[in-house]
């Protein structure tokens, strides 16, 4: 099977490599910025395309991977479905719930397979946490806290800085945690959120989100794009029989570089290598589904529900009131 990548930024590069590692061939690379399409296409001897709507109709493309800024996910998913292609769509699934619905309907109508890349479900540490919970190590869970983020991300034309497009850290980053909370603890009943979303004098976002799950569990999620550097993930789960904690800063490898001429000195870089990247596991799951071997770990409805949680949080931040989901 041959893959067409739409959006040749960081995630486009990443998914091109993962698809190739799965034995797929990258046939075409689309980006509205021609030079970006050409740069990625060159690495895989693929065709560069400026018009991604033309890319989805190419005969040498069987799978379309949508890696664009969020508001463009759904239009490309719909176009790819109408062209009869299977779709791998980055998270967040859409900028609105309506967009997610349209994408799901288009895929259903065209009888193509649509996968939403909630990669956290494939992270080894998160699978280990889930396994401990499932094994009853913390008893019945009552409280969950997770923390994710670091420096404000850069993107093509700084699109992350436009909150109307990206939804800030709440929609773009901690949607990972929102999906994982649903995956492990079921649906959320209501949400309360405070979101910083500053643009002046510096672009900073910090989000404090509390979900009341239908089960009664309280989940608190903190998202930061307010740190000067680094990236950190923390999780804590408390139950009537114990508790567990994970902190990515507590890593097996840490390195620190001596200052070189013109280089950046001093920062400790933690790293925690795994034999197979979670992104690779995610592609294996997707490809296995396409080959009819098993259902996927993430369904399009999961992508929609995660978007609904994030948009509920942003609505709460705007109105100052809890939002029923």
């Amino acid at each position: 099977m041959r893959v067409g990548i739409i959006g040749c930024g960081g995630m486009g590069y990443h998914h091109a490599r993962m698809a190739t590692n799965c034995g797929l061939r990258v046939a075409a690379c689309g980006d509205t910025v021609r030079s970006k399409a050409e740069a990625l296409a060159q690495e895989y001897s693929a065709e560069p395309v400026s018009d991604s709507l033309a890319l989805v109709r190419r005969n040498d493309v069987d799978i379309v991977a949508v890696c664009t800024p969020t508001p463009n996910h759904a239009p490309y998913v719909v176009a790819a479905a109408e062209a009869g292609k299977h779709i791998f769509c980055e998270k967040p699934f859409g900028r609105t719930v309506e967009q997610c619905r349209e994408a799901i309907a288009a895929a259903r109508k065209a009888k193509v397979k649509l996968f939403v890349a909630h990669v956290l479900r494939y992270f080894q540490e998160f699978e280990a946490i889930k396994a401990q919970i499932d094994a009853g190590k913390v008893g019945k869970v009552g409280f969950v806290k997770s923390y994710r983020g670091g420096v404000y991300p850069r993107g093509e034309a700084n699109w992350f800085r436009d909150y109307a497009q990206s939804g800030g850290v709440t929609l773009d980053c901690i949607i990972h945690d929102f999906d994982w909370l649903r995956y492990v603890f079921g649906d959320a009943e209501r949400v309360f959120c405070q979101a910083l979303q500053r643009s002046e004098p510096d672009v900073l976002d910090y989000s404090l989100v509390t979900f009341r799950m239908k089960s009664g569990v309280i989940a608190h999620v903190i998202g930061t794009w307010a740190h000067p550097s680094g990236f950190r993930v923390k999780v804590e789960v408390c139950g009537d029989g114990g508790m567990l904690q994970f902190d990515s800063a507590d890593a097996p490898i840490s390195s620190m570089m001596r200052e070189q001429a013109g280089g950046t000195p001093g920062m400790i870089i933690p790293s925690s290598p795994v034999p197979v990247s979670p992104y690779q596991l995610e592609w294996q799951d997707f490809v296995g589904w396409l080959e009819g071997k098993h259902p996927p770990r993430v369904k399009p409805e999961d992508g929609l529900k995660a978007v609904r949680m994030a948009l509920g949080a942003l609505e709460s931040a705007k109105t100052g009131r809890p939002v029923k989901l």
């Binding site: 913390v138 009552g142 409280f143 405070q194 910083l196 509390t210 608190h220 408390c238 114990g242 508790m243």
Partner: peptide
């Protein structure tokens, strides 16, 4: 803006 967790969630262990 502030969030604060007030709890007795620490297990005996």
């Amino acid at each position: 803006m502030v969030s604060h967790i007030a709890s007795w969630n620490r297990s005996r262990s």
